[in-house]
Simulated assay, not measured.
Amino acid sequence: MILKYEGKTKNVFELEDGHFLLKFKDDVTGENGVFDPGANTVGLTIDGAGLAGLRLTTFFYEKLNEMGVPTHFVSSNMDEATMTVKPATVFGKGLEVICRFRSVGSFLKRYGAYVEEGQPLDAFVEVTIKDDDRLDPPISEDALAQLGILTNDEYATLKEATQKIASFVKDELAKKDLELYDIKLEFGRDAKTNEILLIDEISGGNMRAFRGTEYIEPLELEKIMLAPE
């Protein structure tokens, strides 16, 4: 097992069989000790966040695989807080795709002259470049194509997949009387087939969920979602 990459919230190892192993950490993104799924820095450490993230990620990935949605998910090991995944390449140096159902966070900061806090949005999709030095700037479809990061056809696939996956997560949360405000997803290309895949995690650490006006913390979200009926 070879350490390939040390990330903010997980480490990545290469396995002998060609698959990769993601080791989940208790670090979450945010600023000044406040959790923010859209932040590009580690803001705080929450004991148990890694395992909670893995449990919820596994819950969503197993359902998405059953639905036939292309993902990199293979299996999880809760004892080790690890997830085994297919090898995949990222777009450029990495992209994040956000699907927004309400105006909060960085969207509200940028467009506050035109929207009110919490204003409903119609599964609005935006793409940002993973670039810590430049604070993960948003990028348009035209720029993505002209810079050779992904084609217009790939962008259309990415957008459609994002809205489908985000709407699925939103519906799953609604079953527990929760509302999804926004979610951050990542995609890559299957290293063997070049098919666009959902990669990384789907957990409380990369989404904002509310019950009424109450924000649900990542660990609490995992407990609510995985509580027996």
Score class of each variant (00 low, 15 high):
200 D>L: 13
207 M>Q: 05
163 Q>E: 14
153 D>W: 02
170 K>Q: 14
103 S>R: 01
139 I>C: 03
159 K>Y: 03
210 F>Y: 13
203 S>C: 05
122 D>Y: 12
111 Y>I: 02
169 V>H: 11
183 I>S: 06
198 L>A: 06
195 E>V: 04
157 T>D: 04
167 S>Y: 04
210 F>C: 07
158 L>F: 05
119 Q>L: 14
167 S>I: 12
102 R>C: 05
101 F>W: 08
120 P>Y: 13
113 A>L: 13
97 V>W: 12
201 E>D: 15
181 Y>L: 09
100 R>E: 04
119 Q>P: 01
155 Y>E: 03
165 I>Y: 10
152 N>K: 08
154 E>Y: 07
121 L>G: 09
163 Q>A: 12
210 F>D: 01
136 D>C: 05
165 I>S: 12
186 E>C: 11
150 L>H: 09
171 D>E: 15
110 R>T: 02
101 F>N: 09
113 A>E: 07
163 Q>H: 12
203 S>D: 13
176 K>D: 01
200 D>Q: 11
189 R>K: 10
197 L>C: 09
183 I>A: 12
191 A>G: 01
153 D>T: 04
140 S>Y: 09
180 L>Q: 06
107 F>E: 03
184 K>Y: 10
100 R>P: 00
183 I>Q: 05
129 I>F: 14
140 S>P: 02
183 I>H: 00
164 K>L: 14
159 K>I: 03
184 K>Q: 04
160 E>T: 10
207 M>C: 10
130 K>Y: 14
175 K>N: 01
156 A>Q: 02
173 L>M: 15
117 E>D: 02
142 D>K: 08
144 L>F: 04
152 N>F: 14
